[in-house]
Design a protein around this nucleic acid. Sequence first.
DNA 1: GTCTATAGAGAGATAGAC
DNA 2: GTCTATCTCTCTATAGAC
Lengths: 231, 231
Amino acid sequence: MAHPTPRSTRAARPRPAGRTPRAERTRAAILHAAELAFAQEGYAATRLEDVAEAVGIRRASIVYHFRDKREIYDAVLADLLSGFEARLAEALAIEGCLLVRIEAGVGAWVDYLGQRPSLARLLLREVADAPSAGPSLLAEVKPIADLVKRFHDETRDDPLARRKPVDPVHLASAVVGTTVFFVAAMPRLVPSGAFDPLDPDTLARHRSEVLRITRRLLGVESHSCAAEEAR
Amino acid sequence: MAHPTPRSTRAARPRPAGRTPRAERTRAAILHAAELAFAQEGYAATRLEDVAEAVGIRRASIVYHFRDKREIYDAVLADLLSGFEARLAEALAIEGCLLVRIEAGVGAWVDYLGQRPSLARLLLREVADAPSAGPSLLAEVKPIADLVKRFHDETRDDPLARRKPVDPVHLASAVVGTTVFFVAAMPRLVPSGAFDPLDPDTLARHRSEVLRITRRLLGVESHSCAAEEAR
DNA sequence: GTCTATAGAGAGATAGAC
DNA sequence: GTCTATCTCTCTATAGAC
């Protein structure tokens, strides 16, 4: 048994769709508090007691909105991931050559992590906790993977793509690993709070480093479209 | 409270130094089984019950060798880290220009993760679970950080170093994040076991990708010393 | 919708026999 | 050194009142 509690497979809502505004607010407040708690403490270490306290209600009241702890976690993760999915779709939709659009996508990723660093912490845990075989995480990430795949298909003719300079798995682990570590891990590795990855300047520097890695892994030196298309 | 059980600060051994060969074997077996369990399941989800079963003894017997669960975990992590420390020291001691030695160090890191992938999983969890402020992980990694710092000092005169092309924090998160994700996370993200980062060929490819990232982040195109020193 | 109160399970720690 | 047996704590989940 890898996971203490298996991912919830039951209906997502304990109540029918129609919710009162009050319930809606409480529900949102629970999600927000839970996101912070899960990011800070981890799934197992997070006590529903503390989440309730942060919201200003009692533990048992949470159950009115969510069937169990796992359902809250799933909702938090889904919210974070779908948020990025939307941003990524926007970014990939811009006009421009392949490289410009890839850069837009990678940039959107870095920016999104900067705005919602909880995602970095949750991802760290997700990959650490996911059972070796289970397709759990895979299912959650699928919409995003589909998006990337669609993008890949529709740009198959691009000269850059045809060069196939690097294995996508390597590129993915480089981009995702680097950013997630930068946001979630480095603050805990460099001495006493002297480092804040969310500081706008710091994040901007990181963003350009990641773009540099991306371009260079792709075998491209310049970041101008013209230079690329002139080959 | 971030950690369910704080890192153990008491004496490392429940018994004086002199151990019987039998006890020594049992102790080693516990450490080995615990390493696998912690890597596979995580700290909280690992039951001492299961570790004992894997060793072939009873749960209570573990307590003879280790004061508590945390002490086992600390011992496992220390073993993994000190193993790398030794390899890194070797790698950095070789003759050659700065770039060659940096490459040796990075290569040693990738190779070591390939041999002891548990370290990747534990690191993933460590950074995810470490309390925001606590210097716990920092203390564990200190010997390695010192080693890198010594290396940095003694190569201060190198032309490559003087160019200071990139912030060390960015470089570190790139190298560590990329490798850790590659080894520990990607197998759980690509469909059903079609990907094995520990396969010698796959790992070798990854190794060269990481070296490529390193060189390019450093602003160096060629990997020959001659090319670098000719500037 | 939110509360109080309680049931129930899991897992780590401890005491003491062999 | 390793065992059996037990204790205790924590946290989730549930029942039912307001």
